[in-house]
């Protein structure tokens, strides 16, 4: 019974982790940016969805849409206000740009976190579930929202796979991650591709944020943890590798769930951190890393 419970809960949380991390890895793969405001984007989406549904009475679906839209808007803002000015600045030496982007996005994330705490307080918010009620899976009482979380996460991941592998637009993305200079030589506008990928990233992070808000609830205090968890998953899976991130998400999700059920919920994240340290020693490029 407990085995089945771990299987179900672990699957739902891992799918959500996968969805959250996949956007993070995509942005790194295509534009070389490690966005440390990732958690803030997810929390923005959840809080806006909560506020829209609660204060404007839009209902759960419109609220969720508003949350995702807010995340897309914030992703564009992150790119246009923080990342691009640093990348195009002539006064920052080329070899220091990455560290500037890291610092810039980290500070941007803190600014967003403080703004959310100021406007909506730091109390946790829970997004209205899109589907209420519980379903019994072989005797395990599972909230319907938890099942929907897994289904929607995988649907989004599946759509992303189709986009990257089956459409022209997606193939351009793939090319940009492999050889951006080659792509510009073929006449593609890199800045346009970057805008597209940031929009896509906002969509993925927003969806992950809204689903997390409905599944477990989020507060502005979670910003750092969410960024750290996406970072751990991506490092474990291999920076820039989408399939690696998915495998990483499942390892992290199940390791956390097993720890919480079998040992204690209080030390839930500790084995993951130990694993991460081990991974950096033994296989620094990550499971599927190519850099």
């Amino acid at each position: 019974m407990q085995f089945l419970q771990i299987l179900i809960d672990g699957f739902a949380i891992s799918s959500l982790y996968g969805l959250g991390a996949i956007g993070f890895t995509l942005i790194f793969g295509v534009s070389g940016v490690l966005n440390l405001s990732h958690g803030a984007l997810m929390v923005t989406a959840a809080v806006i969805a909560w506020a829209a549904a609660g204060s404007l009475h839009t209902g759960p679906y419109l609220g969720a849409l508003a949350g995702v839209a807010a995340s897309v808007a914030m992703a564009f803002a992150t790119y246009l206000l923080v990342v691009r000015p640093i990348q195009s600045s002539r006064r920052i030496p080329r070899e220091e740009k990455e560290i500037f982007v890291l610092t810039g996005t980290l500070l941007w994330g803190i600014m967003l976190q403080e703004a959310i705490a100021y406007l909506f307080t730091s109390n946790p918010k829970t997004v209205l579930p899109l589907v209420p009620g519980v379903v019994s899976i072989l005797g395990v009482r599972t909230p319907a929202q938890e099942i929907l979380t897994a289904v929607l996460s995988w649907a989004a991941i599946g759509l992303l796979w189709l986009l990257v592998n089956r459409t022209r637009r997606g193939k351009v993305l793939l090319a940009a991650s492999i050889n951006p200079r080659g792509l510009t030589l073929l006449g593609f506008e890199l800045s346009e591709i970057y805008l597209f990928v940031w929009g896509l990233y906002g969509l993925l992070a927003g969806l992950a944020g809204v689903l997390l808000g409905a599944f477990l609830g989020v507060s502005s205090d979670n910003v750092g943890t969410l960024t750290a968890s996406a970072f751990s998953i991506v490092v474990l899976g291999g920076l820039g590798s989408v399939s690696g991130s998915l495998i990483g998400a499942y390892i992290v999700g199940y390791l956390e769930t097993i720890t919480a059920y079998v040992v204690s919920p209080s030390i839930r994240t500790i084995p993951v951190l130990l694993l991460l340290v081990l991974a950096v020693y033994v296989r620094p490029q990550g499971l599927m890393g190519r850099r």
Binding site: D9, I13, G217, N222, A260, Y261, P265, S266
Partner: peptide
């Protein structure tokens, strides 16, 4: 006794 950082209370 649960950790105040707990986000997933399902196991508890």
């Amino acid at each position: 006794r649960l950790s105040p950082d707990t986000t997933d209370f399902t196991p508890i």
